[in-house]
Amino acid sequence: MRRILALFLFFALALAADRLYVAPDDGVGYLRSLVQHTKRELDLALYLWTRGRLDLAEALAEARRRGVRVRVLLDERPGGEPQDPRVLQVLKEAGVEVRFSSPLRFAHYHIKAMRADGRLWISTGNWTRSSFSKNREYSLVTDREDWVAEFKKVFEADWEARALALDDAKLVWSPERVYSVFRPFWEGNAKRRVLELIASAQRDLLIEQNGLTDEDVFNALLDAMDRGVRVRVLGSASARESNYFGRMAKRLAEEGAEVRYLEGLKVHAKAMLVDGRRAFLGSQNFTPTALTANRELGAVLEGGPALERLRATMEADWARARPALRPPRGPVPW
């Protein structure tokens, strides 16, 4: 009897565990399955959706036709261009409720997240063909009740263009800024949570990022190196000379950080591993806009199979990436 009970508890915990999905390795099938198994409500908050992922539009349309309430909240002009009209047409014809985020609320609605009944998808990637076939992206699927409830609350506020206090949130929300003059409150906690994670590192920080321009993050990484933490920074080979990543990466390399660039995949991920035991992943680039002006969502993982897979993937990417050449210091030894 005890053995049966132990097996039951093991499988119950396995089913309830967070699951990490890695792009391009895992493709898009798991996401279509998540939509297909939704029975009551589906809320999607997304920055960019192109016709390269029209299959996901059809999946949401089919969910609506079988009676699921489907709401989609999008950035109106991602990258300065309107959302794909073909995607919007498929959603509209099926009766999916679609709104654009108010430009008065956020600089960009850069979030990538979805609630499907009692499950929550949090991702670094948009719904484009390249996000699932050419990019390094990470996605977390969880049924943690407190996280699911928190996302539902924030989505409702964003749907109605209302501000919400999120300074003590369990998830990692941007924008972190003070809202209102008369009764001020913090709308997010992202920069504080990211800086706290960096400050907590004792041995090693591994950052795999698409964007790196925030000076507070830069200074926190310098402080980490000063106390003996190994700091590693990983980006796309194409970002080596970019102002969006390469410039600050070079500055960190000059201060003693290890910097490498990954060939063959675009690093669109936004992830940070702390001492191999804790990790951040989400939609936040490490830029001032992402942390303090956009709507973004991330999560902190501590232990479990999802963290272990993230650690293994990031370390594998690091191992096959090419080191950045550091400029020589002092006299050149000809």
Rank of each mutant, 00 (worst) to 15 (best):
N189H: 06
A149V: 15
L221E: 04
A157Q: 05
W173Q: 06
F182E: 11
E137H: 04
S139C: 08
S139G: 13
E160G: 02
W159D: 11
V172S: 06
D204V: 02
A161T: 13
N219P: 02
E160H: 10
V141M: 11
A161Q: 09
A190Q: 07
T213F: 02
G188F: 04
Y138R: 01
A149E: 15
L222A: 08
S174Y: 13
E196A: 14
D167Y: 07
L166P: 01
P184T: 00
V181A: 05
K191C: 01
E156P: 05
W159S: 05
S200Q: 12
V148C: 12
L166F: 02
R183F: 10
D204C: 02
E145G: 12
Q209V: 13
K153A: 15
F182V: 14
A199M: 04
Q202N: 09
R183K: 09
Y179D: 10
W186L: 14
L171N: 05
E176D: 05
L205Y: 00
K191T: 05
E150W: 11
K153E: 15
A201K: 03
L205C: 02
E208S: 11
E160S: 10
D146N: 10
G188M: 00
E156V: 14
A165Y: 03
D146R: 12
L205A: 03
V217E: 01
V172C: 11
L222I: 15
N210S: 12
L195G: 01
V194T: 08
K152C: 07
K191L: 15
S180T: 15
N189Y: 01
W186S: 11
L222R: 13
F155C: 09
W173C: 05
E160I: 03
K152A: 15
V148A: 14
A149W: 12
L164H: 07
E145V: 10
T213D: 01
F151W: 12
L164V: 14
